[in-house]
Nucleic acid binder design. Sequence first.
DNA 1: TTAATTGTTCTCAAAATGTTCACAAGTGGA
DNA 2: TCCACTTGTGAACATTTTGAGAACAATTAA
Lengths: 227, 227
Amino acid sequence: MLTRKQHELLRFIQTRLDETGISPSFEEMKDALDLKSKSGVHRLISALEERGFIRRLPNRARALEVLRRADEGGQTAPAANSNVVPFAKPEATAPAPAGDVIEIPLHGRIAAGVPIEALEDQAILPVPAALLGPGEHYALEVSGDSMIEAGILDGDFALVKRTEIANDGEIVVALVRGEEATLKYLRRENGMIRLDPANAAYEPQIYAANEIKVQGKLAGLLRRYFH
Amino acid sequence: MLTRKQHELLRFIQTRLDETGISPSFEEMKDALDLKSKSGVHRLISALEERGFIRRLPNRARALEVLRRADEGGQTAPAANSNVVPFAKPEATAPAPAGDVIEIPLHGRIAAGVPIEALEDQAILPVPAALLGPGEHYALEVSGDSMIEAGILDGDFALVKRTEIANDGEIVVALVRGEEATLKYLRRENGMIRLDPANAAYEPQIYAANEIKVQGKLAGLLRRYFH
DNA sequence: TTAATTGTTCTCAAAATGTTCACAAGTGGA
DNA sequence: TCCACTTGTGAACATTTTGAGAACAATTAA
C-alpha cells in the first residue's frame, strides 16, 4: 500500500527508467511531482525503499532501481478521495478477462520510409497482456512492405514499447532527422547508425548518430486476415 | 540505476562486445565517450563494477564482462509469488475492455508439416475483438518456417476460425488423412486439393479431396518479440 | 630486455546531486 | 482532542560525478 505521492513517484521513476535507462535525479523528481523542495522527494524515496519497491545506493547520484513495479494499468487518476493507493493483489481477479488485457493507444500509421501519420483521436486497442512486457506501449499500423522479410506486412499492427534504448539487431521505431519515423532494424557501425529494412528491394540507410532518435522498440505484432 | 555517462559507457561496451567479442580498451572507451583523459573512463568503469553491471580483471587489458545489460529490467525480483502479473484497474478505463476482448482457447501447436500437438489444459488467450470476425476461434502456436513468406513465423500465434469452408488462396488449418494438421494455403485443382507452403524450400502437396479436411481458417496472428 | 600497449592513481576545479534540519500544516484513527 | 503520519518549503552542507593532465605501473609482444 502506497500513499498517493509515493505511487506517483514510483511510476515516474519506472517510466523514466524504461524510457531512458537513466535514473532521474532528486531535482528532476522534484519537478515531476511539482514540488519545490528536494527534501520531500528524499522522504518519498526513503519510504519507497523501506517498503521494498525500490533499491538505491545512498549518496550516489542517480542510483535508483525499481524492485517492484507499480500498477501499470490505469493512467494517472487514482480515486480522488482516498489518499492511499491500494495495491492489486497477486491472486488478482478471478477468471476476469480484464486482468489479462492491456489497453494501448493506436497512435497512427508508420510507413516504412514515409512520415508517420499522427492520429489525434485515440483509438484504443486492447492487447493480451502476455504479449507485452513492462513499460508503456502504443500501437502503429504498418504501412509499406519494407519489413516484409521480417514477417511484418502492410496493414499489420506493430505494438511498440516506448523507450530510447535498443540494442543492435532489434526492430525499432526510429525518428529520422526529427522528421520521419520509420520501422527498421537498428544497427550501429563505428559511430554511425544504420537502419536496415527487411526487404532486398530496399537499401540500408546510414545516418550520423545524432540524426536518429529511437522512439521505441517493437514488442509485438497483430494481424488480421479478411473474414 | 545509472547516470548518463555510466549508461553511455555500458552501452558502448555491450555493443562492442556483441559485435566484435573483444573488450574495448580504455583508450577506445575514452574516444567513444568523447573524453580527453582515460582517468574518467576508469572512474566510470569502477562505478559500473560497483553497481554490478560489469566485471573485470584488474590490471588486465581488455578484460571486461557485462553482467547485466543496460536495458534489462531490474534483477527480476526473485519473488516466489509472481506479482508480476499485470493488472488492470478495477474501475478500468473509459472504453470498457470487456466488450472489446474475446477469450479464445489455445489448443496447442501446429507444426507446418508435423502433427498438431493437442493441448489439454486450456491456456486462454484474450484477443482484441477487432481482430476476429464472427464465429468460434481458437489459437495455435506456429512451429516451423513453412509459411515464412506469408509473414508467419515460428512461434507466432495463429488465430483460427473454426470452419470447414474456405476459399482458394486462404490460409487454412488442414487435417491431412485424419492424422496431421498443418497450416497452409488452400488451393483446389480439378478435384484435387493442393496445400501450398509459403517457403520456396518446401514443395506444394497434392491430395485427393477426401484426404483433406479443413478445420479452420486463419483469421488473425499474434507475435511477441523478446522483452 | 626493450618497446609498445594498456591500466592505475593523483590532483585541481567546477558542476551536479544527495542529505539534513527546522518549521508548518493537513489527515485519519484511537 | 491527541497522536502518528504524511506533505510542503527552504536552506545550509556534504558528496559524488565529471573533466583534464600527467606520471607511473603492469602486461604483452617482439
